[in-house]
Amino acid sequence: MSLETFWFALVAVLFVMYFVLEGFDFGVGMLLPFLGRRSEPDGDKRRRLLLTTIGPVWDGNEVWLITGGGALFAAFGGWYATMFSAFYLPLFLILIGLIVRVVAIEWRGKINDPRWRAWCDVGIGLGSWLPAILWGVAFANVVRGIPIDAEHQYTGGFFNLLNPYALLGGLTTVLCFITHGAVFIALKSHGAVRDDAQTVAWRLAIPTAAVAAGFLLWTQFAYGKGWTWTLVAIAAVAAVVMVIGAYLRREGIAFAATCIAIAATVGLLFAVLFPNVLPSLTDSAYDLTVANTSSSHYTLVVMTWAAGIMTPVVLLYQGWTYWVFRQRLTIDRIPEAGGLPLREEVPVK
């Protein structure tokens, strides 16, 4: 295996890790207003429990995106440049969503004011729904290809990216992430929240499997190779197991299945793409490939040594974090809302 191929595979693995781990974070954020309804007496405690399920890990999960983006920039500068210029608006909106989500999660408990927390919940929802949709749209367009000229410049517009295949990709990621999040909440909680999450997971399981199956088959028939049927089969079996696990309320089995299904789906997108990294709809001669966008051999050698040293450290640390915070949560363990007092309650000196 050449270093170029190795780094293409490694970039794929980094994005697989990101979508599997950050996927349930997005799902929790999207489910926040549904599993923590304000009309319920314990609505605020429910929302805080949901955020606590991802509290120790959500920022660590985002490291995979930073690492994936950095690896893409360093190993395939031409791919990075063309893709980021072509997808400037979608990626900008994803970045805004992620920033708003980070700020909302971190600042939600800083002021003891229901209105403040309500606005933060809006930010968490926006920062979860927007990336969940746009990541699917972006990656589907990478597989489908975009108008690129001989100078590897994007010649289309924003609405070129909103084609039926890309929109189906966005719907697939939204449904997969929200189902993934519901199963994760059930796995991490006890009591009424767990029951409600299991119900949501079961209701979403079949629609999610159906939409994902449509996207997988479209991808395979339009862009796939003979051996990539293996990834389609793995994703299909995992989806069936997810549906059965959700029906039986076995969230452990269902969560493992959603992880495998998401990993196989993202792996399929990279597999059908190779050896291209960004096809050109203008002329196949203008395709961006692993060979014509990679960095120098020396750069890839240095990166390989750095990755070989640091990747096991990151995996061990993140695995340890999940192990330490493996316990289930209940509402009675969530303290009353605290933080800074309401502004009008601050005594005047």
Rank of each mutant, 00 (worst) to 15 (best):
T311R: 00
Y317N: 09
T289H: 01
W305V: 09
T304S: 12
L300N: 00
L288K: 02
V313A: 12
N292W: 02
N292E: 04
S296Y: 05
Y298T: 15
M303V: 01
I309N: 05
D287T: 06
S295M: 05
N292R: 04
P312E: 06
Y317C: 07
I309M: 00
T289P: 00
Y317R: 06
D287L: 09
L315E: 15
A307G: 05
P312Y: 13
M303L: 08
P312A: 06
A307L: 12
A306W: 09
H297V: 15
G308T: 06
T311F: 10
Q318R: 07
L315W: 13
L300G: 00
Y317K: 07
G308Y: 09
L316D: 13
Y298H: 14
S294T: 04
T311K: 01
A307E: 09
T293I: 04
L288R: 03
Y298S: 13
L316Y: 12
Q318W: 08
Y317E: 10
G308V: 13
I309F: 02
W305Y: 11
V302G: 07
S296E: 11
A306P: 12
L316H: 10
D287F: 07
G308D: 11
L315Y: 15
Y317A: 11
V301G: 11
M310P: 13
V290N: 09
V290T: 01
A307Y: 11
L316R: 12
W305A: 07
Y298Q: 12
V313M: 10
I309T: 10
Y298I: 15
N292L: 07
V313Q: 08
P312C: 02
N292A: 03
S296G: 12
T293P: 01
T289A: 00
L315P: 11
V313W: 11
D287S: 13
W305T: 09
L288C: 00
V301Y: 12
L300T: 05
V290I: 12
Q318H: 10
W305N: 02
A291V: 11
T289L: 00
Y298C: 10
V313R: 05
T304M: 07
D287C: 06
T289S: 00
V302I: 15
S295E: 09
G308C: 13
T304A: 00
Y317T: 13
L300M: 02
S294I: 01
L288S: 00
M303H: 01
V314G: 07
T289I: 01
Y317F: 10
V290H: 00
T289Y: 04
M310V: 14
N292F: 00
T299V: 13
V302P: 00
T311Y: 08
T299Q: 07
M310E: 13
T304I: 02
T299L: 06
T299E: 05
L315N: 14
A291N: 10
I309S: 06
T299P: 01
M310F: 15
P312S: 05
S296P: 02
G308M: 13
L300F: 03
T293R: 04
T299Y: 04
L288I: 03
S296L: 07
W305M: 04
W305I: 11
T311G: 04
L288N: 01
A307W: 14
Y298V: 15
Q318G: 12
V313C: 07
T304H: 04
V313K: 06
I309E: 08
G308P: 09
D287A: 08
A291K: 12
T299N: 11
L288Q: 05
